[in-house]
Computed example of a mutant assay.
Amino acid sequence: MAPPSMRLRAHRVLLPEGPIRPATLTIEQGFIQEVTEGGTSKAVLLPEDLLLAPAFVDLHGDAFERQIMPRPGVMVDLGVGLLDTDRQLAANGIATAFHGVTWSWEPGLRGTATGRGVMDWLNAASRHLCAEHRIHLRFETHNFAGLDEALRLIETGRIGLLAFNDHTSKMAADALKPSGNIGNAYRAGVPVARFNELALAAAARSTEVPAALKLLAAAALARGIPMLAHDSETPEEWRTFAALGCGVAEFPLNLETARTAVDEGHDVVMGAPNVLRGKSHMGWVSAESLIAAGACTILASDYYYPALLQAAFRLAQGKILPLERAWDLVSRNPARAAGLKDRGRIATGCRADLLAIATPPGMPPHVIATWRQGRPVFGPLLHGAEGASGR
């Protein structure tokens, strides 16, 4: 089905240059062809109190794991869980979602078999889905058994982002504790003793990690796939990954590391739930403090899709950033970092990925309607608009 064409007018539009003001969007074949201040009798007019804004581009979301494993060790059909995820994305204004698919030596939820299944199902079902689903491959640095397949995923263009994660070192340390890795073992679907054996065996090959990462990084650079370094603890650690070609520091643990990345021309992504809650759930650095210091350029949903919308408004309400600049963290900047120049802004030539947002007194801001390439994928609005029909 061809993307629709229509004119859409709103009294409150979040444009890149700010401030919020009235505008009419001419949308043809799913792209914004023109943005004007004047109105037209042929435009669909949004209610005056709604804000029209760019839809979210989410660089790292792993909340889908809760849909496919709603309780520890309890897996459901991948299709059922991922379809539910898709509807949650649309309802929360996420038009482009990079799923944080962990590619680990672990069995179960974060193993390669599950990751492969997620990718295969999303690819097969793509024309039925509301959001655009992409893969952020979280390569566990000690997953030597999964290295060759990861290289093939890169070379065949099946992933959109590559991140380097080292959870193995902590898991190996926890394996030496009496209660270590109980939760991880549940997630993997194996006894604790077996999980600890696997963790220690993986960690024993740490000297082989640098060579494996160089292979992956070279393949990603050749393919033009952006890379991220996860949970960097020091500026020196971050620079090691930057030297491989990583352009994004993902969830750095402190201000010094985040500041180093930004000062050297790279992006820093933090979790939107960190902003929403006012603190890290892991006890690490506050995302809001990094943003206030100019040391965070992107927010991701991380483990909670609603956090993107709430975080942007919280930053504006707290006068940390004006709303249009806060919105850059959840739309324009992640699109740029992912190499997606056609989205993240309400501007001529960009995709018509849009949100209508209500901000009633006494209620959290919430999404009333979501459009992906001009087609409504969530909400009751625009059913009478030219070319506007459900996906």
Rank of each mutant, 00 (worst) to 15 (best):
E65M: 10
G61S: 14
E264D: 11
V35R: 00
Y186R: 15
G379H: 13
A300F: 05
F313H: 14
P306H: 06
E288P: 00
G224L: 12
L213P: 00
L308P: 00
D120E: 15
T85A: 07
T348H: 03
V44S: 12
A188T: 05
L315F: 04
M171V: 02
Y304T: 03
E386A: 15
L8M: 07
L45Q: 12
L59A: 08
L216A: 07
I346V: 09
R87N: 04
P364Q: 09
Q310S: 10
L15A: 12
L109T: 02
T297Q: 09
D263G: 13
Y305K: 06
V190M: 03
V190F: 13
P107R: 10
R66C: 00
G390T: 08
G349W: 10
N92E: 04
Q310E: 11
V80T: 14
P306C: 14
L89E: 01
E250V: 11
D49T: 15
T234I: 03
G180V: 09
G339H: 02
E106G: 00
D353K: 01
E197W: 08
S301Y: 04
A185C: 08
A218C: 12
L78I: 14
A388D: 03
A124C: 05
P178A: 14
I225K: 05
V35W: 09
A293K: 11
S126Q: 15
V285E: 08
A242T: 10
D342F: 09
K170H: 10
L216Q: 06
A307Q: 00
S169V: 05
P334E: 02
R134Y: 01
A311T: 06
A163E: 08
G245H: 06
A199G: 01
L15K: 06
F164P: 01
Q29V: 00
R259P: 03
T240G: 13
T141S: 15
L46S: 08
L255C: 07
P47G: 11
H266S: 11
T40H: 11
H60Y: 11
L14P: 00
W103Q: 03
V76H: 02
E208A: 15
W327G: 01
E28K: 13
L109Q: 03
P235S: 04
R332C: 06
A43H: 12
D342G: 07
L381M: 13
F64E: 04
W121D: 02
A222R: 15
R223Y: 04
N165R: 07
R343K: 13
R116M: 09
R351S: 14
A307Y: 01
A316L: 07
